[in-house]
Design a binder for these strands. Structure first.
Lengths: 221, 221
DNA sequence: AGCGGAAGTCAACAAGCGTTGGCATATCGT
DNA sequence: ACGATATGCCAACGCTTGTTGACTTCCGCT
């Protein structure tokens, strides 16, 4: 279900967490020029993929290391060896980029529809945001992660398109409340009416809301 | 933190779950006239209160029966004795009533502000909705409970005030997406901008959104 | 070829979980 | 006052969890 989502999906594989006891080799390899790919990269990637899937469908607590390892068809101990602990594995798995488009050359009156359309092309068929949401609801570091993502990524994107910079965080928060609300009801809770609405209709309904949160004059009631 | 919220808060105490092995006494008491209060009602209520608190802050998995029992200052086995199992305890604890006001005599152009204002007076200082949300994110029966609540309670309330009955579920879903989105970002994830906005400002921002979801003509973009 | 280290397997640990049954105490009907 | 019954505590069960260490297998290098 989880598809290519993360920056390093099939890349040179994620770095192991800081605390992980790793075979010492760092000084033997040339410092510059990038780390030579290791033989275990495929396994690392498989673990990460399985972890995202499990965290997505089960949440942090119910997603067991044993289940993740079984999905990746390796031993549970390998998960610890490569990622240090369950908490660090989650931190790595939950790392993601909204990859918001550059909104600065979008006409001001089309910001809503562009942002909403983008979020749907990003979310439909990609389970990583629901995954993060699911775990953020019960796991403190998951919640912290969501706060970071929306402060850093959505916050800065919104800051570039609002009229009054001082209003940016508030407007970004409102946008997040509606967009995460849709993600929650459609992908996590699966409220039937929200699941049934075609994306195109949803875009029509939501765009004016986001447009208003972004661009409406400050005192609008 | 959790305050008087549930219908039976200090009432004659919740009925134990069906499967719970209860001392057999039913035939000794008069069938009609209501069950005489039992001596253990205080304990039952304490368990339920502690359970709501724990489920609210920790979610289903992290909220352990032992912790709940410790909060209620009784033995873990009592929780099972009175509520049958953890799952049944949760089912009882998560039972709640939105207690939506009657919207049928509200002027059509004020539905948004009335509904939003009501939800804030209901949620601020009441942790039971965040509790439900937190558990619904990872627990299947929690999610089912939210679906029921919003289909039955919000769904029917909305159905009475929309123009075209066929559009009612969709409009209710949109309303839920925004209101639950606020609950999620403000109370569960605690995104700083959403936490900081005073309720009055939030009402000003959200009311037009809800108003539009409820009353805007069908094809509005 | 042979050695070093990485990759992977296996069994086990300590801790925590929900749940159970037995046993002591308190309360109430008679 | 006595027996019945409700109430509560204690200790333990079977199980699952994250995590660890020892052991074997495989690959790459000199």
């Amino acid at each position: 279900m989880t598809e290519g989502v993360l920056p390093e999906e099939a890349g040179p594989a994620a770095e192991p967490a800081a605390g992980a006891r790793r075979p010492r080799r760092a000084d033997a390899a040339p410092a510059a020029g990038g780390p030579r790919p290791r033989r275990s990269d495929a396994t690392r990637a498989a673990i990460l993929r399985a972890a995202r899937d499990r965290f997505a469908t089960d949440g942090y607590d119910r997603a067991t290391i044993r289940a993740i390892a079984a999905d990746a068809q390796i031993d549970p101990s390998m998960v610890i060896r490569y990622y240090g602990s369950k908490e660090e594995l989650f931190a790595t798995a939950a790392e993601f980029d909204l990859r918001l488009p550059d909104l600065s050359d979008v006409p001001a009156d089309r910001l809503g529809v562009v942002l909403v359309s983008y979020f749907f092309t990003r979310w439909e068929g990609d389970s990583s945001l629901p995954a993060l949401l699911r775990t953020a609801c019960t796991n403190p570091s998951g919640a912290e992660r969501v706060r970071e993502i929306f402060a850093d990524q959505l916050g800065t994107a919104v800051a570039r398109v609002v009229a009054d910079p001082a209003q940016a965080p508030r407007r970004a928060g409102l946008v997040a409340s509606q967009l995460l609300g849709v993600a929650l009801t459609r992908y996590v809770l699966r409220l039937p009416p929200m699941v049934d609405i075609p994306p195109a209709d949803l875009i029509d309904w939501l765009s004016p809301t986001i447009q208003r949160y972004l661009r409406a004059p400050a005192g609008t009631a």
